[in-house]
Structures are given as C-alpha cells and as structure tokens.
Amino acid sequence: MNPLILTILLFALGLGTTITFMSSHWLFAWMGLEINTLAIIPLMTQHHHPRSTEAGTKYFLAQATAAAMLLFASVTNAWLTGQWDILQMSHPLPTTMITLALALKIGLAPLHSWLPEVLQGLDLTTGLILSTWQKLAPFALLLQINPTNPTVLIMLGITSTLVGGWGGLNQTQLRKILAYSSIAHLGWMALILPFYPSLTLLALLTYLIMTLSTFLVFKLNKATNINTLAISWSKTPIITTLTPLLLLSLGGLPPLTGFMPKWFILQELTKQNLPLLATFTALTALLSLYFYLRLSYSMTLTMFPNNLMGTTPWRFFTQSTSLPLALSISMAIALLPLAPAMMALLTP
C-alpha cells in the first residue's frame, strides 16, 4: 500500500476513536465509530485475497448494523428524553439497545460470530489493530452510559466467557483462537461493568498488553496455525521460552499479570454478594486455559522434530524490531506485584 494512503488511513483510524473519546453527544460518538470502521476496511482488504475481501465485507456488515442500531437508539433516546447527552442516559429502552449495539461492535457473545471469521481473514498486524485499538471506542461509550439494569451485561458477560472458552477448544488456527480468547476476555469486562467500571478498564488494559504481545510473538514467528508454532524454537529460542508464561498469563494463572483483573473482578463480585456467579465465571476461565495450554504444549513444552538445517535459523540476524515485543511481554508476564499501583492509576 502506498505510504501516503496508509498514513491517511491510520490517521483516520486514530481520529475516529479520538472523536468518540471526546464526544458527549451521541451523534458525534456515532460519527467517530463510523470513521473508525471506514478507515480500517481498506487496511483489511489491502492484500487482494478472497479471504480478506470476505473478512472486510463481513466486518462492514456487522459494524454497519451495529452503527445503525446505535444511531436508531440515540434517536429514540432523543425522542424519549429530549437530549443527546451520552452521560444522561436514563430510559432503559435506548440504554439496552445501545449496550447491545456496542456488544455487537466489540463482539460479545451471542453477537460474536463475525469476530473469529473476520480475524481469520486478516494479516496479523491488522488483526492486532482489530483486537486491540478497535475495542477502545466502544468501551469508552460503554463505560459512560450507566446501565439501568445489570442483567443484560451479566448475561452478555457469562455467555461470552463460556462461548470464548468453548469456541476456542477445537481450533487449530491461531487467529481464530485469539478471537475466541478475545471474546472470553471481553466477557469478563462486560461482567464487571455494572458494578465497578474501573475494573473493566483494568481488565481492558491488561488484555491489550497481553494480546499485543501475543500477536507480536506470532508475527515474529510468522505463525498462523499451531503447527507453525511448533518450529518456532528453532527461530526464536528465548521468545519461545517466554511464550508459555505469556499464554498462561492470558489464561489468568497467578502470579502472572492475567491473574490481576480476574482476582479483582472476583473480589468485586463476592462483595456484590454474587458468589455463585463468581465461581461460575472463574470456572469458565478453565475452558480458555485449556487451549492456551495446548498452544504452550506444541510451542515450547514439546520439541518438534526438525532436520539439521531446520534447527539453525536463530543464528541469522533478523531485521525485525523486537523492542515493543520485549516491553509488552515483560509487562504481560510480571505486572501482578504492581497491582496496587495499577488500581490507584485507574480508580477515579
């Protein structure tokens, strides 16, 4: 892609999200989301391949539906209450509709089914943008409306953690696994949103860090399915050693970073006197853990047989930059001792 066009697209991508961040008016928020969607579609289809075209189309349809629903809901809101202010949502009907529209936008189950298919059609960089940056604007809106009834978000959250775990179990394609992992993580964020929005933010932040490093690891290894991961030990031995920790951190095992949001979310749920919900959610995390564990098995904990020439690529100098990966992977593994500081940062 022409660098000038790429720059314009990335700028528009940033602009759309920023407009949504800044807006207090539903029309502006909707506009930001639309700019954002329209900017990423050319990025999705930059490789002329049937799969990426399919992904772009599916993404467009899902996002357009969500945006139309959002617009409809905000117009309804204006009609019912006479104002467009995001922070002043009071009527349950538009609030629920907007929640569902945003759930479709980020891919919360049961509105998730576009996400794995779209992600599978993208290259890893665009996939990274889709599973990190594209979640920010909808979450900014979700955090601002105060839901009148927590049941919708709880149901979305529980379904997502379940579907995210179950869906990932029989996948061999890394991008689909990451999509389901994303669904499960978003479920945790949606679950705690009605009770303690700062924890949603914390979970989102740790999810961004962990997903960033996972995508960067896969990109460094040019890996798109589990089999390719199996020979990564011959390309990048040290990253291969660290990746199980990263994957288990995604799975939420103490003492890694991924445990922090889960711990706090469970604590808040027990404080809200919802111990059964807390236990159930905690146990659904085991489903996701299984496929992370399977990835670590094939990547690091077993040695894939390779011919003699195949074992030496790590000796060659590579041009790829690894500083972002180094930073994000250390944060994705070892942030738990900083939990008090993180909470202080994110609590208003």
């Binding site: 604590q267 027990t270 807390a278 905690a282 085991l286 098995y297 077993t302």
Partner: peptide
C-alpha cells in the same frame, strides 16, 4: 507427560478457583 500435565493443572485449578471465591467471601 502432556496428558499428565493437563490432569495436574486442571484438577488443581478446578479445586482452587472455588477456594479463591471462598477466601474472598471470608475476607468480606
């Protein structure tokens, strides 16, 4: 050994995640 590792991890975690919730309840 992979099977053994999975058994080890999942037996222990299936037991100890309810423990975490129980401990947090106790703390409350």
């Amino acid at each position: 050994r992979l099977n053994a590792g999975t058994y080890f991890l999942f037996y222990t975690l299936a037991g100890s995640l309810p423990l975490l919730v129980a401990l947090l309840l106790l703390q409350n």
